[in-house]
């Protein structure tokens, strides 16, 4: 049994002799160097897209997290830009209601407010 495993190993090891044509790796390096230079000038948006695509299966988790964080940030910005609705920092909410000390004059008993009598 062990011997057969060894024979399989030896047969499979023959794949080691499979190599690309001569000069392939020189061209490969040149192509890699060109690509590296080209990538230096790639805009940030494209790099972010590539980074996202390289995340594999975790990209959906990262995307959901990013969307959640964006939503939270948007809510915070909205709240901070509208002080009337800020429940924490809005000092108007704790401002005491001013008390009107001036007494209103008493109304005449027969006076109709909708049909005032001509003077």
């Amino acid at each position: 049994m062990e011997e057969k495993h060894d024979q399989v190993s030896k047969l499979i090891a023959l794949k080691n002799y499979e190599q690309p044509p001569e000069g392939y790796f020189d061209e490969f390096l040149s192509e890699f160097q060109n690509r590296r230079e080209a990538e230096k000038s790639v805009p940030l948006a494209s790099r972010a897209t590539r980074w996202f695509s390289e995340l594999g299966s975790t990209k959906w988790l990262a995307g959901a997290g990013l969307a959640g964080a964006t939503a939270c940030a948007a809510i915070l910005i909205m709240l901070s830009s509208n002080p009337e609705t800020d429940p924490i920092n809005n000092s108007s909410n704790i401002r005491p209601t001013p008390v009107n000390h001036t007494p209103e004059p008493p109304k005449a008993p027969d006076e109709d407010p909708n049909n005032p009598s001509p003077q």
């Binding site: 499979e18 190599q19 490969f28 390096l29 160097q33």
Partner: peptide
């Protein structure tokens, strides 16, 4: 880094 590419590309190719 290019030297690392030269060194490892044949093995990784296989």
């Amino acid at each position: 880094f290019d030297r690392l590419v030269v060194k490892f590309s044949p093995k990784l190719y296989g």
